[in-house]
Nucleic acid binder design. Structure first.
Lengths: 257, 257
DNA sequence: ATTCATTTAGTAAAATTTACTAAATGTAAC
DNA sequence: GTTACATTTAGTAAATTTTACTAAATGAAT
């Protein structure tokens, strides 16, 4: 999509968002999502590129009026990835007054492109508190989509992230930290495994998420002891090797969800 | 202070807050503080009583423009208790659209008392996201103060709390949960002990905060092993008993603060 | 000197975690 | 059919941590 064409098609929507967004959305508050993507021992992070902003940033956005925080996060993730109802957890709320540097924006260019005469006093130009959520999904099953405010949306290897806009570097660190703490308490990451999977698969998942080797023999005992998993009778054939049992998530006692 | 007298003195301030508060404060976002008070094996919680609201609630309030979240929390606590620079930790952010029920308020009475003609479209009548912080202090060292918006402010025994307004019952549960998790990771509660204290004192504190007995011999080993504490040479005389060593907080490696 | 409540050291038992070994298994190659 | 082999699974010994308990040390009051 060419830039010219983009502006011709979207100028009205953008103008409406800038001028009237505060009627549909709650001003001053956003959610930001650290969406981890896993597939075959690779861990990635979903980043988006806003128009007229140099760096990549975490996907996120405003909360609709009368919308729950977690619903806003889910809506955002659905819009970007096509995946719904992920396991979502809050990790921290960020509100430093200098977390967004408005002077960095190219106001002139923005005004030209949007055709607006001024954004003094606009609802968007304000200290904004952002509630951070994290989620994990299988990146191979997502279909990334941009919208009128983002020019790109892509998975980045977790070990090779570009510098991020705003305070999103810190957000990623905090999200990672919280996710790793939750790994042995909540069934994180079971969203992205098939309903029935093998110990080998979840073992690889945990090693990748934690970024370290886990003993191949002790790891399954631990998860079974925690009662996050249960062993099924059925087995899977994997070629010239012993067939592993299938494993499934225990449904009992997930009241904390 | 009589009600009549109160309104004569404060009507103007209240009117200004209602009409122009959004100029000094960020709308739609508040902080709420679960301030635990400890003294001699008693654990209490600070609650406030707003005018024209039936139930007690947690102290909290709006964030000033260009103020950090944690500064807003500290300001609130300072204003209520006279105590400054407490160890503060975020525990969760609450944003359900129904967490504040505006229809419960006695609007008629309010309008009468404030002398305002309408509050339709007022900045206060809106979905509000609240960031929860917890802190611990020594309640015997606090001097509680009310302000123009609160008619009372008091310490309640943690085991005998009244039903709270808004979603503050849930907030208290979450705050308690997080505080207890943090107890072996952060030097919580050292604010309220003197700079030098004995193992017996911190032992009693931890038992009270956790609500359970801790082995008198193993507990000190644990805290010393965690390097939260260090033993001093000096001893304290406590009468007809063996004199305990003084203990102090280790200052090293508190980078996470 | 004796007594006593309390602090502190020490240690044995229990439980958990970690490291490692070996057996079981399914099928592909021979 | 037999063998080879990568992988899964069971099992266990060692190491570590936690828990429970015992006893010694202490300092002042009696």
């Amino acid at each position: 999509m060419g830039k010219r064409y983009f502006w011709r098609c979207n100028r009205r929507r953008i103008q409406d968002f800038i001028l009237n967004g505060h009627l549909y959305y709650i001003p001053h508050v956003t959610i930001d999502c650290a969406i981890f993507g896993y597939h075959e021992q690779q861990l990635k992070l979903l980043l988006i590129k806003h128009r007229n902003i140099d760096n990549w940033s975490l996907p996120g956005g405003y909360i609709k009026r009368a919308e729950k925080l977690v619903d806003a996060a889910n809506r955002n993730i659905k819009d970007r990835t096509g995946v719904d109802n992920l396991f979502l957890q809050q990790f921290k709320t960020f509100g430093d007054p200098d977390r967004i540097q408005f002077d960095k924006f190219d106001k002139k260019k923005w005004l030209e492109q949007t055709g607006l005469s001024s954004w003094e006093g606009n609802w968007l130009i304000n200290q904004t508190i952002s509630v951070g959520f994290y989620a994990i999904t299988d990146f191979s099953k997502t279909k990334l989509q941009t919208d009128f405010s983002t020019e790109a949306c892509a998975w980045f290897d977790i070990n090779n992230l570009p510098p991020l806009e705003y305070d999103h570097d810190e957000m990623v660190r905090e999200a990672m930290h919280t996710m790793r703490l939750h790994l042995y308490h909540y069934p994180i990451g079971l969203n992205m495994l098939p309903e029935k999977f093998t110990l080998g698969e979840i073992h690889a998942l945990y090693e990748t998420l934690l970024g370290k080797k886990l003993d191949v023999s002790n790891f399954p005992k631990k998860l079974l002891a925690l009662k996050l998993l249960k062993k099924l009778e059925e087995k899977r054939s994997i070629g010239a090797h012993r067939s592993p049992h299938y494993i499934a998530l225990t449904k009992k006692d997930m009241t904390w969800l």
